[in-house]
Design a protein around this nucleic acid. Sequence first.
DNA 1: CGGATATCAGTGTAACTGAAATAA
DNA 2: CTTATTTCAGTTGCACTGATATCC
Lengths: 157, 157
Amino acid sequence: MIEPEGERVAYDPPERLRRLPSWMTSEVARMASRLVTASLAQDGARRPHFTVLTSLAEQGAASQADIGRRLSIDRSDLHAILPELERDGLVRRARDELDRRRNVVALTAAGRAALERLDRRIDAAQDELLEPLSGGERRQFARLLAKLLEREWGPDR
Amino acid sequence: MIEPEGERVAYDPPERLRRLPSWMTSEVARMASRLVTASLAQDGARRPHFTVLTSLAEQGAASQADIGRRLSIDRSDLHAILPELERDGLVRRARDELDRRRNVVALTAAGRAALERLDRRIDAAQDELLEPLSGGERRQFARLLAKLLEREWGPDR
DNA sequence: CGGATATCAGTGTAACTGAAATAA
DNA sequence: CTTATTTCAGTTGCACTGATATCC
């Protein structure tokens, strides 16, 4: 069917797509990505910065290669991120004297403080994302997502 | 904490990330994207091809500009996709004689048949994605996703 | 003329690849 | 000699921008 004259065509994906779980999930992920990116930007941070700081806080200091493997961030991308975090005083990098190939990356006090601020930003973004859902629905949503991901992580997490 | 010697570090994102709804949603979306891409590839198609064919089947023939607006696909990307679909005989493009700026794109019989095959591939990918969930859980998951997206589409859909 | 369409070249970005220098 | 780590240059895929010829 050709659009009637004068009819402005707007964003309007077909029903078949809008009902596909894979499509809806991608749309929600896009929404989440926008919200998270915007919330971190308020503190001048981007996603990988938050990811790295969180890993250092929870899993401890590590070499760049290990950080990359834990978070599945490419070594080249880490190489772009870490100097920025170091310049802002959020992490300290030092040669590992037991294995002088390695740069051991550790969180600083300033990094810990920055992470606390980012944590609050991230939580606010989650609230905004889940705003249409009740508390019970939010828990249910999280449970279903976790169930879908258990295959990747293994059930023992 | 430095990794103990000999310990191989594997993919293991921190708990804080793994519990974030935004993060879990993105992971599930990545999983869905892999499954959908692989299922379409079995018939030599990619995502935008399926999207365009679906729109033509459900919403009817349209100009390239209108297809782009309906699906929010960039005009340049459409320009890459449509010649491929035309070459394979899945769509027909013809100058609109009432507005000779427009290329009216329409599904062919071969296109309709190809779409039927792709539809089955897509449904199989959904099944694979949702495999860990029961029937009731799948409906619940779809309901929650739709609720999160109602803000974008408006509630009247 | 202003505005829309289809086309095509080019830009910006992010994920990744290859390779060098250093060290184990 | 082989392997691992960090660094850095380059590639690829993708979304998007700018410009042009055509048409309303």
